[in-house]
């Protein structure tokens, strides 16, 4: 086993029970994060991004069913861990930054209180030591006037500052992996740029693994080493960011990139025809086939196997069969 491997998701199938039956969302997701590596996960709403991320920490809603698969964290399967082991991981190893910084912070407590609680549970530190650690974390998150922030309630801070507080919370102590689920979606353009820059810098300095989940393709491209493209519960393409963005292979990735409006004002695509499939009865074979312009009979039969088209750049599409 690879010494450097931090997280390895293998063939993960997750569904949800609803009144219309079982919705088969994740259909064999795989993902690898090495120590200190920055990973981007691109996917539109409903593609299963959040389900994947929640599976890693096992914080899925109660109607979720994990049908098969493995999530190896430092070689150990998260899905088979006891509550105690899980708690240890959630408290010390992996942390998550959510889309909405407002609901992520309990409005009844001051920032300092929130941080000290986390420090208390994770590192058994209290009093001055805990305060010192909290202030340092706030300072590291480039918050101006950490003392004042420490003494503020979340609602007294702006959206950007709140997200910085969340980042500070997420990076307290010696984390190994940060999962950021659309961390900047709710922020303004100029603030977004600041927050992403900060997050990228902190992650690199501390050599922490980072999974950056987002629809903002530009932001992903500017911040990660490797990127995975998720469509309808399948990873359809993955590889080094530079290669995927300059040479997208999967028809979905290509279409998606064309849909992004360009600052140069070049006409953008008409969108992708159809919509994300119904997970109650998902399409057979490649789940993208009903929307694909290059569909072949074989696409409807079986899920395509990944092909390494260039060094470390994989695609799961029959058009690249040798």
């Amino acid at each position: 086993m690879d010494e450097n491997m931090l997280l390895q998701i293998k063939n993960l199938h997750v569904g949800y029970k609803t009144h219309m039956g079982i919705s088969h969302v994740l259909n064999g997701v795989h993902l690898e994060v090495h120590k200190g590596e920055r990973i981007g996960v691109i996917g539109e709403s409903g593609s299963g991004k959040t389900t994947t991320m929640k599976s890693i920490l096992r914080i899925l809603p109660s109607n979720a069913i994990i049908k098969k698969g493995e999530i190896l964290y430092n070689g150990k399967d998260v899905l088979k861990m006891s509550e105690k082991e899980l708690l240890e991981i959630r408290r010390k190893k992996i942390s998550m930054i959510f889309q909405d910084p407002t609901s992520a912070l309990n409005p009844l407590f001051k920032v300092g209180q929130l941080m000290e609680d986390i420090i208390k549970y994770s590192y058994k530190l209290e009093g001055d030591e805990a305060k010192e650690m909290a202030l340092k974390a706030l300072k590291d998150a480039a918050l101006p006037d950490p003392e004042r922030v420490y003494d503020s309630y979340p609602f007294q801070l702006s959206g950007g500052m709140r997200q910085r507080v969340c980042i500070a919370l997420a990076l307290i102590g010696e984390r190994e992996l940060i999962i950021a689920d659309e961390p900047t979606t709710n922020l303004d353009v100029t603030i977004k740029a600041q927050v992403l820059k900060l997050l990228g810098k902190m992650v690199r300095e501390r050599n922490v693994g980072w999974i950056f989940v987002s629809q903002a393709l530009g932001a992903v491209q500017e911040n990660v080493d490797r990127v995975y493209v998720l469509y309808a519960g399948n990873i359809v393409e993955w590889g080094p960011a530079g290669k995927v963005f300059s040479n997208p292979l999967h028809p979905y990735t290509q279409k998606l990139f064309e849909c992004v409006p360009k600052l140069t004002g070049k006409k953008f695509a008409k969108g992708i025809r159809g919509r994300i499939p119904n997970y109650f009865s998902p399409p057979s074979g490649c789940r993208f086939h009903p929307r694909c312009d290059f569909v072949m009979p074989v696409c409807k039969k079986e899920l395509p196997k990944p092909v390494e088209v260039e060094h470390e750049h994989f695609v799961a599409c029959y058009n690249y069969r040798r």
């Binding site: 100029t190 977004k192 963005f245 992004v260 600052l263």
Partner: peptide, 18 residues
Amino acid sequence: QMLLSSVPVLTKEEEELK
């Protein structure tokens, strides 16, 4: 200018506009 420089972009030509 600040707003424009904050826009995340995909291509080189766009990068040059910032």
